[in-house]
Design a protein around this nucleic acid. Structure first.
Lengths: 129, 129, 129, 129
DNA sequence: GTGGTCTAGACCACT
DNA sequence: GTGGTCTAGACCACC
């Protein structure tokens, strides 16, 4: 699992780590029980502060993506993430709303958007691999 | 045009104003040349500082959504927004990637996602009158 | 002499009037002793406030471009404008400096700039006509 | 990099900061990746409010001159500014028009103007090292 | 009345 | 320490 950071992004470093782990899981590159690097080694590898990595891991643990064992280290959660519930669906809609609104204002057609959407989606093969 | 704010949101207030204006345009509720409330009156109406409204308006102006006439006030840009170019398409994909990745991890099926996506999209009727 | 205004310009209306009169003189379209419309008629023609036209005319008078006779109306100054002195030259340099700096940053070559510069200059034929 | 302000100038303070940074880049005094002072330290150094500096920096960022890292501070953009396009060329002509018109009215000859122009230009050595 | 600018002071997230 | 955001209050130019 390679984490690549964009230090010029508006997203915080810890947010980028979280996103990349989630993307890794969605792509099937990270399977349940797969180990993740320790806080210390990941921080060292990508040249950032321990606290930053720790914050990302704590958030991932909180969201059910990973398990943190004191001795055994960090692994992808064996049971997977909790499934989408109605609250999540609603928040997803609210997230997509302004993004889609801008796309509509820029005159992207529905077919173009659906196509672009599927293109992004098909990078993810969780369960296929 | 009604602006509703969520003061508990993690999105900045000025960001929420921007999004609501863009959504208003996408829905066709705000048409080219429609006036927007003045900085002072909007700030007063929604109970925030005029600088916060001004920041939102400046950003909307920068992105081509509105025109700001020094004395005459603010109107929706008569020529519409600049169309989607390849740079925008790419940034849109990058924006969608982590959102979709989470949805995939939560085991939303492609059909469910496309359906949800269309549901959001069909709130917008720009061009339909 | 036709005055065309851009109500979306960042320049004030009265500034635009001033500039257009000066450009008219530089182009030779406005010759010494040529009459200008009265404050009242110009304001009416272009649909703006009397005060705005008056402010422009007062400034033009102040700078020696025009004469305002109480009864005879407004005419281009018969003696021309006061010539460039060292103070003017210096202020002109300071004005050009940031404009040229931006052009250099955008990698316009010296030949391109000189060419562009001459192109603008050759619109003006004062003394040729 | 020394920023000097003219508090009597008609140009806004934040505009003067922007211009001085652009001039610094054009002169080659500010190279890609060179750090700029933090918002707070520059504000303190030149005795103005940090918001005024921030406004200048935000504009410079918007125009592609600098990058603002959330924690690491501000640097000159490593990739340079976006090159001159036809829209820029047109706006440059419109900017020069009234300036040149006044110069012509003051009977500056073409040779004098070109000479003055080159004098300003030759202060800038971007690319010469 | 409008937006443009500047100041002053505060709290927050991130590293 | 950094920038990001928000508030509060002031003065200005323009119309």
């Amino acid at each position: 699992m390679i984490i690549t950071l964009d230090f010029e992004s508006k997203d915080a470093i810890y947010t980028q780590i979280i996103q990349q782990v989630i993307i890794g899981i969605a792509k099937g590159k990270l399977q349940p029980n797969d180990p993740l690097p320790s806080v210390r080694s990941l921080a060292s590898d990508i040249g950032i502060n321990l606290h930053t990595v720790n914050k990302a891991y704590q958030q991932l643990k909180q969201d059910g993506y990973i398990l943190i064992h004191r001795q055994k280290g960090v692994v992808i959660h064996p049971d997977g993430v909790k499934k989408a519930d109605s609250a999540y669906i609603e928040s997803l809609k609210q997230t997509l709303k302004p993004i889609m609104a801008e796309a509509v204002c820029r005159e992207l057609k529905e077919e173009e958007l659906i196509s672009l959407y599927k293109e992004v989606l098909h990078e993810f093969k969780k369960g296929d691999g």
